[in-house]
């Protein structure tokens, strides 16, 4: 049951993304091109999504727990640091290069288009690379040898 609802939620998300145009790099890149072929549609995607999510979360998070679990898993950290800002800026640079964000690319990968699948492979490579680097910088010097 849990997996079926998760599948359906993924399907609603993916269908919404594709209808909205978030899975279409040409449209996404035009949103960022105010000085050129500007297409402001993506403001409406964010607006439509928040118009549902803000009241929806208010209702849901006011309840004691979700239907299938014992509690809500919300991010604990409130820290605003260089990691958050520089990481997000970097993501934005990548997004501006090809017009795919992860949420746009995943449903688009369902078409089986080679370019989108290649984006997916590169995305995973970048993520694993970041994970390795993170392990190297957060582990104190010499810890690798003693462990």
């Amino acid at each position: 049951m849990k997996l079926l609802t998760a599948f359906l939620i993924g399907l609603i998300f993916g269908t919404g993304i594709l209808i909205a145009g978030m899975g279409n790099p040409a449209k996404v890149l035009n949103f960022f091109d105010i000085a050129g072929t500007w297409d402001p549609s993506l403001i409406f995607v964010m607006g439509g999504a928040l118009a549902v999510t803000i009241p929806g979360y208010l209702l849901v998070l006011g309840r004691p727990k979700p239907l299938f679990e014992n509690g809500f898993q919300l991010p604990a950290t409130k820290l605003i640091d260089k990691r958050l800002v520089l990481g997000s800026l970097t993501f934005g640079v990548g997004w501006g290069i090809a017009g795919f964000c992860p949420g746009g690319a995943l449903p688009a990968m369902g078409t089986g288009r080679t370019e989108v699948l290649l984006f997916g492979v590169a995305l995973i490579a970048g993520l694993l690379l970041a994970r390795l680097l993170n392990r190297a910088i957060t582990r104190p010097a010499g810890a690798a040898r003693t462990a």
Binding site: R83, L84, L86, G87, S88, L89, T90, F91, G92, V93, G94, W95, I97, A98, F100, C101, P102, L118, F119, G120, V121, A122, L123, I124, A125, G126, L127, L128, L129, A130, R131, N134
Partner: peptide, 11 residues
């Protein structure tokens, strides 16, 4: 782009 997006969204 994929590598940069993966890297940036991780951090």
């Amino acid at each position: 782009s994929g590598v940069i997006v993966g890297f940036g969204t991780f951090f």
